Simulated assay, not measured.
Amino acid sequence: MNPIIELKGVKKKFSKFQALSDITFSAQRGEVIGFIGPNGAGKSTTIRTLLGIIKRDAGKAEIFGKDVWRDSVEIHKRISYVPGDVALWGNLTGGEIIDLFMKLHGGGDQTKRDALIDRFELDPKKKAKSYSKGNRQKVGLIAALAVDSDLYIFDEPTSGLDPLMESVFQEEVEKIKQAGKSILLSSHILSEVERLADRVVIIRKGEIVETGTLQELRHLTRSVITLETKQDLSLIKNLDGVHDFTQRNINQAVFSMDSSRMNAVLTEAVKLEVVYLEAVPPSLEDLFMRHYEK
């Protein structure tokens, strides 16, 4: 199956600054790609390159098998895009702007538009200049979700939204995913990416440092173990794969553990007569911090 998005060795330089050094990843039909990294890592530059706003210096960049720079007009007919800070026409109402965006895209579902306005609790009769940042984001999201696209690109889409509206957005993304659409989601809310993404792409200093499913990437991080035994468990401290061992008393301890050593450590723990065991699996945030904490 041909990928919806395909990037290979994409590079981009602004004067002396190398914004993108080697960007390589792909997205398949019906797949949600979580695109994460710290500020300045190159997320927005990559997305603008995909949108044909910025011309790459080298490498391959295609959407639907078409070149993102040369065929940008054709590509844009089949995609929806929401940036992290939606700019609107101040003297138009939210409803008028949504209708304009839908018309520019080439259509849309009026019934779905109205339902989304209700779900996102937007007042469409207010002029855009009176909107908060969160309401501006709602306008962009409603306009994007109300049209039928093959690819949705979200760059920090829930910036300014409260947790309830973030949840509404996540539910809508799950719906379009179930409809077989592809989604590229760049977000600083790691729990959001963790909930929605099939695969995660981590970017650092203009390079892709990790890519894979959450299950594939979790072996790189450590689970947090809370353990209570009948016997002294201090010997656990010196086992391979055990880190940050804190012994509360002779029978209780909290430590982190490499997933690859889980079986060996638990085998030794069983010998000490386990009373209580709690294992908290690593989250996407753990993985993120592992690359950027320094």
Rank of each mutant, 00 (worst) to 15 (best):
A143P: 11
T211W: 06
L220D: 07
E156R: 12
V147W: 01
K175V: 14
K112Y: 13
F154L: 15
Q137S: 12
T226M: 11
E216L: 09
T211Q: 15
T221L: 12
I183R: 01
S234N: 12
A115Q: 15
D232T: 10
R136L: 12
R195Q: 04
F169L: 14
Q215C: 01
G140Q: 01
G140N: 01
Y131F: 13
Q170W: 02
E228N: 07
I117R: 00
T213L: 07
D150Y: 06
D123V: 07
S186P: 03
K230G: 00
L161H: 12
S191R: 14
V173S: 00
A179C: 03
L141T: 07
D162T: 03
T221N: 11
V168C: 02
F154A: 10
T226C: 09
R218V: 04
I153C: 07
L185P: 02
T229W: 10
S187F: 11
L220Q: 14
D148C: 04
F154G: 09
K138D: 00
D109W: 07
D198P: 07
Y152A: 01
V224C: 02
T229V: 13
E210L: 15
Q231E: 14
I153W: 00
Q215D: 10
D148I: 02
A115N: 13
L227M: 03
S191G: 13
D198S: 02
E228H: 08
I202V: 12
D114Q: 10
T229L: 09
F169K: 08
I208T: 12
K125E: 01
E210Q: 15
P157L: 11
E171K: 13
G180L: 03
V193K: 07
L185R: 01
P124M: 03
S182R: 10
I183D: 02
A115P: 07
G134K: 11
P124L: 04
K133L: 11
D114K: 04
T158R: 13
R136A: 11
T111Y: 11
R199Q: 08
L184H: 00
D198A: 04
R195T: 01
L161P: 13
V173E: 00
D148A: 00
Y131W: 08
K133N: 09
L233C: 05
S132A: 08
E192Y: 04
A128P: 06
S159C: 08
T158G: 14
E174Y: 10
V209M: 11
E216Y: 12
G134N: 08
E216T: 12
D118Q: 13
